[in-house]
């Protein structure tokens, strides 16, 4: 199997901040239709890894290939346009706009200056927004100002803002932080549904939640991969227990 058969192949990825290597010669391969969870103690480089993939941080060395396309040299918006979506750790939504407008802004049409000036709210946009809102459990809140949503609903909204772009790689940084038990269950269902036809990378600390959703788990520690495999395998790994799970 060549590396290009993977949706995402990260090879020898290194980023160093003034000599400190936040991610150190990391290799990571994610398949199509796979839901990968990345776990690890604080400072392991999980968020930095997502930053590198989506272009927020530039790599010092190594390569990131998405569907065979090198991402490390692309501008952030070009990475998004090639099909990579990323949710930030703190829900990052437009608080002053309505839920509908939040989703509409994320709709992948009229992304240039003049395109956005000519953009019209056509029936297909409205339809798509409603379909996504349905999926993220916010169909009844379309007219609500997004800032008034609960923390969990904001998390869903941001996921929805990514889904509306139909990304092939979806990266979610702590999607269930601040959610109630019920909301967590719904989110687990949501993630299982949306990982069809795309790859999903999730960073999460809640081990019950990880167990429920993960196809495969990658454990990071000090910027390096400590272990990788099924949840059972990883949980049984003595090194993982020592640096992370044991606490």
């Amino acid at each position: 199997m060549t590396n290009n058969d993977f949706m995402l192949s990260v090879e020898d990825l290194t980023v160093s901040f003034d000599g400190f290597k936040a991610v150190d010669a990391l290799n990571l391969y994610v398949d199509r239709n796979e839901l990968r969870v990345v776990i690890g103690p604080n400072g392991a480089g999980k968020t930095t890894l997502l930053d590198l993939i989506c272009g927020k941080t530039k790599a010092t060395a190594g390569s990131i290939r998405f569907k065979g396309k090198e991402l490390t040299k692309l501008a952030e918006h070009d990475i998004v346009r090639s099909g990579v979506g990323r949710k930030f750790q703190n829900p990052s939504i437009y608080e002053n706009l309505s839920v509908f407008e939040n989703l509409e802004i994320s709709f992948p049409r009229g992304r240039g200056v003049f395109g956005s000036l000519a953009f019209r709210r056509t029936p297909d946009v409205v339809e798509r927004v409603q379909a996504v809102a349905e999926e993220i459990f916010l169909a009844d809140h379309l007219d609500m100002e997004a800032g008034l949503l609960s923390h969990g609903q904001k998390q869903w909204l941001e996921i929805g803002m990514l889904l509306i772009q139909s990304p092939e790689l979806l990266m979610l940084d702590e999607p269930v932080a601040g959610m109630s038990v019920k909301e967590r269950e719904l989110t687990a269902e949501l993630l299982k549904r949306i990982c069809l036809n795309r790859s999903v990378i999730v960073i999460e600390h809640d081990m019950d939640f990880v167990q429920r959703i993960a196809h495969k788990v990658t454990v990071l520690h000090q910027g390096k991969m400590l272990a990788e495999g099924s949840m059972e395998k990883v949980q049984a790994d003595p090194r993982v227990i020592e640096v992370y799970l044991g606490h």
């Binding site: 998004v80 930030f88 990052s92 437009y94 608080e95 706009l97 802004i105 956005s116 953009f119």
Partner: peptide
Amino acid sequence: ITTSKFGRLLLAMRDKEDRVRFSGYDVADF
């Protein structure tokens, strides 16, 4: 301009520039 999507994007950018950038927009152009 303000009633078009461009106007909403400006407001969105003012508050959450990164979110706009990572929704596929070249913020600088706007």
